[in-house]
Amino acid sequence: METKKNETKNKIENKKGVPTLHTGAILAQGVAQVGCLTLAIVLGGLGLGLLLDSKLETSPWFTLGLILASVPISLVAVARVALSTARQATSSQPEEPNEGDEE
């Protein structure tokens, strides 16, 4: 009970229909991750491909293969992060305050 009270206290309730600071922070964090994920995965694939090609002298097959593989991987990863952020943001929404819960 006490934990729940503290949780509610940590969130900044908005009396004019604006979501909480907590929700805003979760959203910003998740969206920032989504924004960089595709880039990180594709560049990771490219870097690893170039490295393997130069070590194994197989240019450009590893580079091509890993770049191609990075496309579906990045799409799936973005979808997963976006869904998990949406779930967190939804669960962090404050409950409708009851009449007697004002103070």
């Binding site: 979501p19 805003g24 959203l27 910003a28 594709v42 799409l75």
Partner: peptide, 27 residues
Amino acid sequence: FLELFVGAVQALVFVMLTSGFIVVAIA
């Protein structure tokens, strides 16, 4: 196809981040 997706995601990310920061600012 990937670039179509990335272009749309980046536009959305920019808007959602700005609105997320506005929520934090006006709270």
